[in-house]
Amino acid sequence: MQIEIPDQGGFASALVHLKPGESFVSEAGAMYVASDNVDIDVTTRARSSGGILGGLKRLLASESFFLSTYRTTDGRPGHVGLAPVQMGDVLRVDMDGSVPWLCAGGSYLGSASTIDVDSQFQGFKGFFTGESLSFVRLTGAGPFLVSAFGRIVEVEVEGGLTVDTGHVVAYEETLSYSPGKLGGSWLQSFLAGEGVVLHFTGRGRLLVQSHNSDSFGRRVGSMLSPRS
């Protein structure tokens, strides 16, 4: 499956080229252009992911309730253009089927139909850290797309790594995290402007975003005039 990301950076998008028989799944509403031979099927599930229940679980992961599936209808190749809501990078990740991935906080943009899309509850970790209560869990083999606010950076974790909350995009399930503080005490951590951080352990790939959309929203919001 050919996927182009023509304008990586602040306003990235993806162009998915579909051969006859291929299909691609995305968040509903992510499509901005498609060839006239592409059929769009909007459902609450992708493959085995739970119908209405699967849609509700994705809502907890800050994802759309609905998913769109794209395929050609006339035996000819086609294409579909996908873009995230917020400004930033789009990255393709290829899965070989050996390790599931977890996507945090609305970063999932789309995936090949050979990948199962489900949600994994994060428990009180998600509530305490300000991350989503559920992450989107991807299993299977094929490409998937993630988006971020700002630049996406891939890190190979071997042992441990500390990441500020609001910067996690996606990670391999061979990694685990726990919330904690940065510095010697909680007071020092909050005075330094860090608050809660995530301590990752294990060995695997981690994608982080350079900017925090929540912090950006609070900064912009404080500059706006009060509503009348």
Score class of each variant (00 low, 15 high):
160 G>S: 15
104 A>S: 13
73 T>N: 07
166 G>L: 06
57 K>F: 12
44 T>L: 01
49 S>A: 14
73 T>Q: 04
75 G>M: 04
50 G>K: 12
156 E>F: 00
159 G>V: 08
88 G>L: 06
207 L>F: 08
20 P>H: 09
164 D>W: 05
148 A>Q: 05
149 F>A: 00
176 S>W: 01
79 H>S: 15
162 T>L: 11
41 D>L: 10
179 P>V: 14
91 L>R: 15
108 Y>E: 02
152 I>Q: 01
135 F>N: 15
48 S>M: 06
74 D>G: 03
144 F>Q: 06
141 A>Q: 15
62 S>D: 14
82 L>V: 13
168 V>I: 15
227 R>D: 12
182 L>I: 10
207 L>Y: 06
38 V>M: 02
76 R>H: 13
85 V>P: 00
95 M>S: 03
68 S>V: 04
110 G>W: 13
154 E>N: 03
93 V>E: 05
61 A>N: 06
92 R>G: 00
52 I>W: 10
54 G>M: 08
166 G>F: 07
66 F>L: 14
173 E>K: 09
32 Y>T: 09
53 L>T: 05
171 Y>R: 02
160 G>T: 08
15 L>G: 00
163 V>W: 04
74 D>A: 07
181 K>L: 13
85 V>I: 13
162 T>C: 02
168 V>S: 01
84 P>Q: 11
149 F>V: 01
143 P>K: 13
146 V>N: 03
122 Q>G: 09
113 S>G: 08
100 P>T: 00
73 T>K: 10
183 G>N: 08
152 I>V: 13
216 F>N: 04
181 K>G: 04
42 V>G: 00
200 F>G: 01
220 V>R: 03
190 F>S: 11
131 E>V: 01
217 G>H: 10
154 E>C: 03
213 S>L: 13
152 I>T: 04
91 L>A: 13
82 L>W: 09
116 D>F: 10
185 S>Q: 05
110 G>D: 06
205 R>S: 13
72 T>N: 02
215 S>E: 14
143 P>F: 14
39 D>Q: 14
86 Q>W: 12
26 S>C: 05
148 A>F: 03
85 V>K: 11
133 L>H: 00
76 R>M: 10
193 G>Y: 10
57 K>A: 15
86 Q>K: 05
122 Q>P: 00
212 N>E: 09
18 L>W: 11
86 Q>R: 12
194 E>V: 09
79 H>Q: 14
159 G>L: 08
189 S>K: 03
95 M>H: 05
145 L>Q: 05
175 L>E: 04
2 Q>G: 00
9 G>F: 08
105 G>M: 04
105 G>Q: 12
97 G>K: 11
182 L>F: 10
